[in-house]
């Protein structure tokens, strides 16, 4: 298969970026999208130019490191996959593919298609955990959790932190990411003691970092490679209201 690629190139955080066009041919339909970029990169190195930088790691759809905005879709046109699991058979021969980095104010571009997503970690650091230190915990079966709740929590917890929800959202909102973590811990009894302060702190951090507001368009849900559901956002809103109204704890801003 042959493709024309329009790829965003930007030397560093401050440099002005531009689109560059590359032609690539003889690509197997079984080739993954990132492998196609590998092939392109090897040809660029052959020509002594700098290869295209993109984030990637596990290449099996779980680490959340890869993330390209391909033809108007985060992670490309296939559903429920990350970029590394997208295969060229999903494109038509001769197609022009435009590849852009995630675009959001809290995700500055480091180089080419690599963006800095540490903002997501910063939100987690504000309370995306149960404050249990090592040791001194009760037996695993001392806390009973209904299968339904445990499964639901697992679904929320399967977020891989790739940032596709932010990239997809027209407002660059991180609500799906934040709500997945808030939901997971709100569903489990272990997360209850800190629930009220957690949701307030995490939302405050999310706002401070410059993510947009949620307008319930659900683009995040549509593009999430792990199919995290919008009901998580509703649950976070509920948790937030309860925390603001009923709890005496509040965020110091």
């Amino acid at each position: 298969m042959d493709f024309t690629l329009k790829i965003w190139r930007q030397e560093n955080r401050k440099a002005k970026g531009r689109f560059e066009t590359y032609k690539i041919s003889n690509i197997s339909p079984d080739c993954s999208f990132l492998e196609m970029l590998d092939i392109l990169n090897e040809s660029l190195v052959d020509k002594l130019s700098h290869p295209i930088c993109f984030d990637h790691d596990c290449r099996e759809g779980i680490c959340g490191m890869c993330g390209l905005y391909i033809n108007g879709h985060p992670h490309g046109p296939d559903s429920a996959v990350t970029t590394c699991q997208l295969h060229m058979r999903k494109f038509s021969d001769g197609e022009t593919i435009t590849i852009e980095p995630w675009r959001a104010k809290p995700f500055p571009i480091i180089r080419d298609l690599i963006v800095d997503r540490t903002a997501l970690d910063k939100i987690i650091q504000e309370g995306g955990y149960v404050s249990a230190t090592t040791g001194g915990v009760p037996d695993g079966n001392a806390i009973l959790i209904s299968k339904h709740k445990a499964d639901e929590a697992m679904d929320s917890a399967s977020c891989i932190g790739c940032g596709a929800c932010v990239a997809a959202c027209k407002n660059a909102s991180a609500m799906l990411f934040v709500s997945a973590k808030v939901s997971q811990l709100a569903l489990l009894p272990q997360g209850k003691p800190e629930a009220a302060i957690r949701v307030q702190n995490m939302v405050a951090k999310m706002d401070d970092l410059g993510f947009g507001n949620c307008t319930n368009t659900y683009a995040c849900e549509a593009e999430c490679p792990k199919q995290i559901k919008r009901s998580n956002i509703a649950r976070m809103n509920r948790e937030f209201i309860c925390a603001k109204v009923a709890s005496e704890e509040s965020t110091k801003r």
Partner: peptide, 15 residues
Amino acid sequence: QCVAQGVPFARDYSG
């Protein structure tokens, strides 16, 4: 330790 951290291990119907 992991249960205390909120790791959602699979549960059976008894919880």
